[in-house]
Design a protein around this nucleic acid. Structure first.
Lengths: 243, 243
DNA sequence: AGGCACGTGTGAACGTGTGCACAAAGTCGC
DNA sequence: GCGACTTTGTGCACACGTTCACACGTGCCT
């Protein structure tokens, strides 16, 4: 039964990517990028960590540490050259190439996503729309909606590398399985379910009601705090009253 | 010059709320809740940490630790009673009360959000839609779209406690300022900008292209790894070629 | 040319989050 | 009722992330 194995083996850091860049930093790079582009449009040529941090909503120390993971792209006593930094972050995020995106599920949200201009702006091109309903055959945002029956074919034909799932919850998992089988390894999921995928497939989830629930939690705490009430005590009383 | 002050003072933990519950745990509670409701619909009355964890996409140890922050609601040797746990998590998240939500910006995304059924399901009620364009006066999802000119009035009249911003980037900050001035302290932001808000106001951001960029980063790394190439080396060569 | 002001890059300390492994606590069968 | 089995709740160790504070590089001014 071997009660205490040494088990110091097979430990691979999963949150740190390759030889570099912590996950938390990666998640912030897009924010920096947007802030930089915005600054560039306003004509700025250099920017200090303090300024950029303010624009991105983080502290300057965090920003500097994040950027230091990409290399030493700043100049001491001056700051960072905006254009050069835009280039470096874009490159690191892989935005030099064009990513071909398919949207699965053309309901309200799918429509909105298809028409959303923000995709094209930075390296993302929506190349396929898929649905199972009456929308099939219609033109949406310049593309004809294809049937999910042809999913495998469309994915291969259009060389899709990222899929966006915007279906009702029940349809998401089966479609996800088919996408994975078709070779997709990056999925952005808007459906309110936790997708089960094999190792090597990356899923990111965007969930509206989850976000609202987190806000509600904090809002509730605030209300209780204003009244000078310990929320836990209230909760306890509530439980007892309910019993 | 006092080279090393002890400086252990005025340190208040900001990520831990009140007397309890770590932020990371709060972010997962909605996921557990959904998994539990789904299980309940399938007729389950009790569930083990192992099962629930699988359904929620986390490890069982993490789940147990998360739930332990709410109290001891499980039974050793058996598991958790599904219905009771649903109740406890709902209560903790503040879903016992109805949250009144306003959506600002009724474009493609605003439409989709207004029609999204997932809101009503758990304590969230959309009570106001606001826009500045031609949509004003139209009926969307059973509500008449009001003008943003009346924002302050509508917020007060409808007792809005959470605002959702779904406008273009440029409009977001001014509207945010007005919402905050009108007393809103919880905002869900879909606009592609970092909102600046005073202390005490909680903003959560959902950003489609940010998510795609994070996926692209990992996808890029994967491609390079498959080819047996160190991505950093490629990047370096790329930089040199560009100079 | 030399000092000075400025701002980056980073080592070290701290706090938060995760994973392991097991004792405590409960149930079920006999 | 007692023992074997199951599963929770948690102490501990470690990994990750953030913050602090300052040395050092860079440009500017005299």
């Amino acid at each position: 039964m071997s009660p205490s194995r040494p088990n110091g083996l097979s430990r691979q850091p999963r949150n740190v990517v390759s030889r570099g860049i912590p996950e938390a930093t990666v998640a912030r790079l897009p924010v920096y990028l947007r802030a930089l582009v915005s600054l560039a449009e306003r004509g700025a040529t250099t920017v200090s960590s303090e300024e950029l941090a303010a624009a991105a909503g983080v502290t300057s120390a965090k920003l500097r540490k994040d950027l230091s993971h990409l290399g030493s792209y700043g100049t001491r006593g001056v700051g960072y050259e905006v254009e050069y930094l835009v280039y470096q972050i874009s490159r690191e995020l892989g935005l030099s190439q064009d990513w071909r995106v398919a949207i699965v599920g053309i309901g309200n949200l799918g429509h909105a996503l298809a028409n959303y201009g923000g995709f094209a702006s930075r390296g993302f091109r929506v190349v396929a729309l898929l649905d199972a309903g009456e929308v099939v055959g219609e033109k949406v945002a310049g593309l004809t909606v294809a049937s999910v029956d042809d999913l495998e074919h469309v994915v291969k034909e259009q060389e899709v590398s990222i899929a966006v799932i915007a279906t009702p919850g029940a349809a998401a998992q089966p479609l996800c399985d088919r996408l994975v089988a078709a070779g997709i390894t990056s999925i952005l999921n808007f459906a309110p379910v936790v997708l089960q995928v094999p190792e090597g497939v990356k899923v990111r989830k965007v969930d509206l009601s989850t976000e609202l629930q987190i806000l509600a939690f904090h809002e509730q705490r605030k209300s209780a705090a204003v009244l000078g009430i310990d929320a836990d005590v209230v909760a306890q009383a509530f439980v007892e009253a309910a019993q």
